[in-house]
């Protein structure tokens, strides 16, 4: 038996044994009840939001929503085809930037970083992750919109991509560290160069976990609005050009929700339902991507 340290608070616990057991039992039960209630209340808003979203959204959702363009006020039957396409393009652009940089950084941190540099980068990565998304938006505006003089999807995609980097870096590093060192040794002993060992053995083995992390990151940025307001800006027309303003689901929801028109409110609900479904589906897929192909027989 290793004797645990006795802390001051534990001595306090001894003293309390003087109190009547019945009262202490009662306190225990009450607090247990309080915890149940707190947990219940904390999940209540979620239930509220989901119920309302499904009810309002489903009634406004039809085939037009996915296939039609937005219509002017007063005309029924508009959709958000351009916003859906825009979200996919923006997320794709972000992934094209965030995934390689994040995976590369994660590989470096897990495999070859000098200790001080690695912990500095890790810390700053956490800090970057905590930056408000609106700050990312004005940064992208300052660097990519202001010089060219017009809004562009590219600026929005890059803002989202920068937000992805710390998320992908973190999971990549964690997943790479889960790969047994013996696999790396085995590959080196077969005459693999370090880079080949890293890419074709270690990274490949960690891939399911990294895919999960990448999906989680995508799910998070897919719903972002703030970085897009003055970068991608929004567009009432069909445009897939990265050089032009582009619509996105979150932008369209924001615009419609804050408008005074009943018909647009309905579309905003439908858009929110689709956006949330998209985010949840990605998150669920991420959950079920197999993480356990590290094989039997070692570690």
């Amino acid at each position: 038996m290793n004797a645990p340290r006795t802390t001051g608070s534990q001595r306090a616990a001894i003293e309390r044994t003087g109190r009547t057991l019945g009262r202490r039992r009662l306190t225990n039960s009450i607090m247990l009840g309080v915890m149940y209630v707190a947990a219940g209340l904390a999940t209540l808003p979620l239930v509220f939001i989901l119920v309302h979203l499904v009810r309002e959204g489903a009634s406004a959702l039809d085939a037009n929503f996915f296939t039609k363009m937005p219509r002017p006020v007063g005309e029924a039957g508009g959709g958000m085809a351009n916003a859906i396409a825009g979200t996919l393009v923006l997320v794709g652009t972000a992934a094209a930037i965030g995934l390689p940089l994040g995976i590369g950084a994660g590989l470096y941190l897990a495999e070859q970083g000098s200790r001080r540099l690695a912990s500095t980068v890790r810390f700053l990565s956490d800090i970057l992750n905590g930056l408000p998304s609106i700050v990312m938006g004005i940064f992208a505006w300052q660097v990519l919109v202001r010089p060219v003089g017009h809004f562009s999807a590219l600026a929005g995609g890059i803002a989202l991509g920068v937000m992805m980097i710390p998320l992908v870096t973190r999971t990549t590093e964690e997943m790479i560290r889960l790969v047994p060192a013996s696999l790396r040794e085995a590959a080196l002993a077969l005459g693999y160069a370090r880079w080949r060992t890293s890419l074709s053995i270690v990274l490949r083995t960690a891939m399911p976990g990294i895919v999960t992390g990448a999906l989680v990151a995508v799910a998070r940025i897919a719903g972002e609005t703030a970085p897009l307001i003055f970068t991608a800006f929004g567009n009432q027309f069909w445009s897939l050009s990265l050089d032009q303003p582009m619509s996105a689901l979150p932008l369209q929801i924001y615009a419609y929700a804050t408008s005074p028109f009943e018909e647009w409110h309905r579309l905003a609900w439908a858009g929110a339902l689709v956006l949330l479904a998209l985010v949840l589906i990605i998150s669920l897929v991420a959950r079920f991507v197999t993480r356990s192909r590290f094989g039997g027989g070692h570690d």
């Binding site: 979620l46 509220f48 939001i49 309302h52 979203l53 799910a219 998070r220 897919a222 719903g223 972002e224 609005t225 703030a226 979150p250 929801i253 924001y254 929700a257 905003a268 609900w269 929110a272 956006l275 949330l276 985010v279 949840l280 998150s283």
Partner: peptide, 10 residues
């Protein structure tokens, strides 16, 4: 996981 704009709408 719920996007901020959806909270706003609600």
């Amino acid at each position: 996981a719920i996007p901020s704009v959806v909270y706003g709408l609600w």
